[in-house]
Write a protein that binds this DNA or RNA. Structure first.
Lengths: 220, 220, 220, 220
DNA sequence: CATGAATGAGGTTTCATTCAT
DNA sequence: GATGAATGAAACCTCATTCAT
């Protein structure tokens, strides 16, 4: 579930070596893709930046698209890993939500180029791998579903059952929007301001009552 | 506002003919780009689908990227045109907002492939044209800024001044999300349901009081 | 003999108009060819610089190579015309030679770009037209043959009969060398110096005796 | 002197292989350029005639112009190599001059198509490479400068100091003229006759006295 | 007679991938 | 297991020429 449930075949047998070399490849490719886009990046550039020969690259990967998939998986892995840090908290749903939104937004800011990359290049994946990437995307959304459910369970959040998923999507997309529309948002808001305002708006939608309790200090 | 402000040079002098041929080109290219992506579409495919020879194509366009720009401009044009139909209403801000959100979401649904295209291929534009496309994107956001301001002015909407822009962006991104995440949302919601729920959530954030008035009828 | 003994066919009947239009074309093409070379100049550039539509250009010319031929013919015409001014003198052969060499070198300097053009692009002509151009080139050489013969006849020049043609070629090539090797010669000599030195060397080869008579004043 | 001083970059690392492949390329290209000219020769023709795939060609060369440069350098190399054979003699300047002129003319005859090629296609080189080719051309001229200086030093030649360079240029151009104007010269002279006559004329210009000594035997 | 839109063959160059070493 | 030279399909784009108006 959490690992690369689609083991890309290799001509190399030692799995540890495969792991290591692929890390090299992904590290190099991610930056190249961010800088020039998937299509304008050549396999030779990837090989060179990986410190591998082009022939060696193809020992660990079957096609350029495999590299893209590896990159997407890596990015989701990074994101998931960072999110898992906070998601496991013991607070009530509502406090957890606030904390996790803040954390999520910070992650998106941190990985903004990567987030953008996923949205822009994902369509170049072959259908099978595309499906896997979308599933990973969905897992992230599901993290928020869980948090929202906890809030509904402990009464700290008031939200119709059939709106939970949607709300989770909203959270995710509002986070990603920070990168999609950074050309506009950055002119008007800092990440801090952005996070605070969005959190405030979100809470208005789902706080039982009274609104804005506990946030007067502007700590988020 | 209506002028393209970046007249792509042509080798053909008759402006009417240019207009017509470019329409052909865009009509053909849009679908190809949607289907295969910008990079995997060849200029010859565009020419053939346009009913033009490859040489003729290049009489009306200087590069493949010009076609992409034309396509982006066309898409924004379509979007703007449809939106302008409704945005001019005389209602109070709040009613206008509800109507325009509904309309906007419908447009996004209508043009979903196009909206996706813009997000995915825009980065392949040369910097100058990229800037123009972003400006057009911003204009759409601004439509909602205007509506929100009207609502603030007539007292039908309650929203901090420095949140107006952000809220407008939220509306837009929530609309576009219908296409970005259709692989997930379609499984759980129809456009109707999606629109109603999102509108409801949005209103909760900015309705002066009391909440949820007038929605019981399910009119949106 | 002196006119374009190969009348390029036209779709236009009025000969005066043909003449005029072709003058336009040649005037424009010569400079373009000099600047960018024959192959890198497009017919459309020629048409535009001629003040004609591309279609009109082809009313007066059958191919791009025709234009090149016209240009070569024009250049030779220019050269011939200037040379004829002096060649008709009544002096003794020797004085006439000195004067005509000086004049020829000055012409070459004047038309240096054109002279270069002939040497560099002539090979792009179709065989028939190439032959005509070479014949014109030969005519120039023949001017000097005539002068040398006069000098032999009147005793002012001493030169073996079977060296006359060669010597004429030498004169021509030494003149053209001023343009071929201008990147080297210009660093060391002015046209004046170049002319004087070359004349002096040439005369040493063919003056009966004593050497260097009458040129001490350095007037050439 | 022997180094190419402008190493064209390659995608291939083994310098020996590069050397070998480029020899193949040049060998093929030279003849094609001679036959059809630079512009009318296609890169694919060059590749095929080299026995390489088009892709392979571009592993060793960055552009068609690079091929032209390689060809020019090769031609100059050939010329220089042949000339160096004789230039190193121990004779007096005058005898050396006669021998080297004869040798040079023979070389030009031998490489006539190549010499022509240089004059006609050199202008298609990018500026930097053009400069290098002109420098190589100048080096050839300089060989004769050296010989003339030796003759001046040992008293076997009489020539003003400031005419040395010019005279060297004259020798070179008279040699090259054998190819430029072969369409005319071949009709009247064999290479032997041409060489003898030109040598005789040249010597008249710079032999201290008495003129025409030692040529009666027709030894050159 | 003038025009210029239309055409498509063909040019140069790139690049993902393979396979012998 | 590592390498990189070889490959050729295919990409983008140009341009001489024609022909209907």
């Amino acid at each position: 579930m959490t690992d690369e449930s689609k083991p890309i075949p290799t001509r190399v047998s030692d799995p540890q070596l495969v792991e290591q070399r692929r890390r090299q490849i992904v590290k190099a490719a991610v930056d190249l893709f961010v800088e020039k886009g998937f299509h304008k990046t050549t396999t030779r550039e990837i090989a060179k930046a990986s410190g591998l020969g082009i022939g060696t690259l193809y020992e660990y990967v079957h096609s350029k698209e495999d590299v893209l998939y590896l990159v997407c998986a890596y990015i989701h892995g990074e994101m998931k890993q960072r999110l898992d840090d906070v998601m496991g908290g013991k607070e009530r749903g509502r406090e957890l939500l606030v904390a996790s939104v803040r954390h999520f937004f910070a992650c998106v800011d941190d990985l903004q180029d990567y987030v953008l990359l996923i949205y822009q290049e994902t369509k170049s994946l072959p259908p099978d791998q595309l499906k896997l990437v979308l599933r990973q995307e969905e897992e992230i959304t599901h993290l928020f579903v869980n948090i929202l459910e906890r809030g509904r369970a402990d009464g700290s959040l008031s939200l119709a059952a059939d709106s939970v998923k949607l709300f989770a999507h909203n959270i995710v997309i509002l986070g990603q929007m920070w990168t999609f529309r950074r050309w506009a948002l950055r002119r008007d808001y800092t990440l801090e301001q952005y996070t605070e305002k969005q959190t405030s708006l979100l809470l208005q939608e789902i706080c039982p009552s009274p609104l804005r309790t506990g946030h007067e200090k502007g700590e988020f």
